[in-house]
């Protein structure tokens, strides 16, 4: 039982997919789920707090360019972490970048959860034939990773944060379908659903009354995991110059705009946004793992 979710869908379908660089992690840390939850929760909370604070205050304006200090080192002229290639304050950009990160994740994961959850429940409740069809489609869908789909969308429409978010969201839908379906199957075989059926409750009523509340935990776990994927995908896209626009503070965009400094011998400007991305991804990953460990025994073991 390396991966509870995939085994629940049965070995007949292809393996649980992973996208971008984060595969769903094996739930190997059961001994101390609290530690994961606390660490992950703290990091995520930190990102949220920074994002909120940056709404009202950043040390410098994020568009101000200090024409006397191009890519200056940390501590120069009141710039805590220095300035970037165009003289903007790195610390301020990092703070405001947290907003973009959260915003992108929210929209992308929102799309995926809102579309994927009902489809997953449907797949778990319908006849075998339909289940098979839905699972085949999700299999196929999974062959379009978020980044690839986002690049495709950027070709057809103007590349923008919005098209990127939609693409990432659409690409993440199947992972929700699978997770929710496997949870639904478990719930559907439970005594109380059987009882409700005998009592003449119809499908939609069962879905809303019994299935949805019970798979909600799984959805939340998946939201956390998908959030990490979305953050990575946004960073990658913006780094390629196909995500956040020129005046949108974004960690990926910072990497893009400052990339020539690597050859020029000032790599430090690139480290900050890189570390920010890694930290946020780590936070959501840990949070997801921690939550899953909390939920799994009850749901899967039922």
């Amino acid at each position: 039982m390396a991966e509870p979710v995939s085994t629940a869908t049965g070995p007949a379908v292809s393996p649980e997919p992973a996208q971008a660089a984060v595969a769903p992690l094996p739930a190997a840390e059961r001994r101390r789920p609290g530690a994961l939850l606390v660490t992950g929760g703290t990091i995520v909370a930190l990102v949220v707090v920074v994002a909120v604070v940056s709404f009202f205050w950043t040390p410098w304006s994020t568009i101000y360019t200090d024409v006397l200090h191009w890519h200056a080192g940390p501590g120069t002229a009141g710039h805590l972490l220095g300035t970037d290639i165009r003289g903007r304050d790195v610390a301020s950009l990092l703070m405001a970048g947290a907003q973009t990160t959260l915003y992108v994740g929210l929209l992308a994961v929102g799309i995926a959860a809102v579309v994927g959850t009902p489809l997953g429940i449907l797949a778990g409740m319908t006849s075998r034939r339909w289940t098979e069809v839905i699972l085949r489609i999700t299999d196929l869908w999974l062959a379009f990773p978020a980044l690839l789909l986002a690049l495709t969308f950027a070709t057809i429409w103007k590349s923008s944060l919005t098209s990127a978010m939609i693409a990432i969201g659409v690409a993440t839908i199947p992972s929700f379908i699978r997770v929710v379906r496997s949870g639904t199957v478990v719930v559907m075989s439970s005594d109380y659903v059987q009882a409700a059926r005998v009592a003449g409750r119809r499908g939609p009523a069962i879905a809303v009354r019994h299935v949805l509340p019970n798979v909600m935990g799984l959805v939340i776990v998946q939201v956390s995991v998908a959030y990490a994927i979305a953050i990575l995908a946004e960073a990658a896209l913006s780094y390629l110059g196909l995500g956040a626009g020129p005046t949108t503070p974004s960690w990926g965009r910072m990497l893009f705009e400052n990339s020539s400094l690597l050859q020029a011998g000032y790599p430090v400007v690139l480290l900050w946004p890189g570390l920010a991305v890694a930290l946020a991804v780590l936070g959501f990953n840990l949070l997801g793992d921690g939550l899953r460990d909390r939920l799994d025994p009850r749901l899967v073991g039922r």
Binding site: S61, I63, Y64, T65, V67, I85, R86, G87, R88, G241, P246, T247, E257
Partner: peptide, 11 residues
């Protein structure tokens, strides 16, 4: 253009 834009926006 990518290089000049941020400075122009700021000014």
């Amino acid at each position: 253009a990518t290089a000049a834009a941020p400075i122009i926006v700021s000014q």
